[in-house]
């Protein structure tokens, strides 16, 4: 069940970009916490730059987190972009369009990439999948990972989360003929 957002969500000044840089930093970090909590409770991996949840395959017409109808406030897009760029800097979000500064959608990381990596490694160990080639689809969408927090993770994000394991020489990512990561082997 989605959890209700904390009371600060109904605090009108949160929706106006604060001119004082120290207060603004505080404001952005509150927004980051809000977004992470919102994404986690909705199990949303991906959000559009406008702040609505994007689910694969289906066009979502959900309301944006940056629009609060109850108090009739919304965050201006310029400030939203600032929030996103700060989140990307702090490793709490990844733009889906790599290389570009502003992308239309963002992956939300309510755990850090390293934390996801170790969780995935745990799955590999407990499911007895070491020394085997496992496709990324199998890992993130397959029936065997149901019940794990990373189940349902978009494949490109899963590939990103596997990179720390590669750096630790615990895993190798196998690319397909187009250079897209498709599988991983963990030892």
């Amino acid at each position: 069940m989605p959890m209700p957002l904390p009371p600060i969500y109904s605090f009108p000044p949160l929706y106006t970009r604060q001119p004082n840089s120290i207060i603004r930093r505080q404001q952005i970090s509150s927004w980051m916490d809000l977004i992470l909590q919102y994404a986690k409770s909705h199990n949303a991996w991906c959000m559009s730059a406008e702040g609505s949840i994007v689910t694969e395959g289906s066009e979502s017409v959900q309301e944006s987190i940056f629009v609060n109808n109850e108090i009739e406030r919304s965050v201006p897009q310029v400030f939203i972009n600032e929030i996103w760029s700060t989140m990307c800097q702090e490793g709490k979000a990844i733009g889906t369009d790599k290389g570009k500064k502003e992308s239309p959608t963002y992956y939300i990381l309510w755990r850090t990439v390293d934390s996801w990596a170790s969780l995935i490694l745990q799955w590999f160990e407990s499911a007895g999948k070491l020394q085997q080639v496992v496709t990324i689809y199998e890992l993130s969408q397959g029936d065997e990972s149901i019940g794990w927090e990373f189940h349902g993770m978009p494949e490109p994000l899963t590939a990103d989360c596997l990179k720390p394991l590669c750096h630790r020489h615990r895993a190798t990512i196998v690319n397909d003929e187009y250079g897209k990561p498709v599988a991983v082997k963990v030892v």
Partner: peptide, 17 residues
């Protein structure tokens, strides 16, 4: 050493895909 992908791995990968 780096985790090696053998021919067998590739074959299984095809199957799994």
């Amino acid at each position: 050493s780096r985790v090696k992908i053998t021919k067998n791995d590739r074959a299984i990968l095809q199957l799994k895909r």
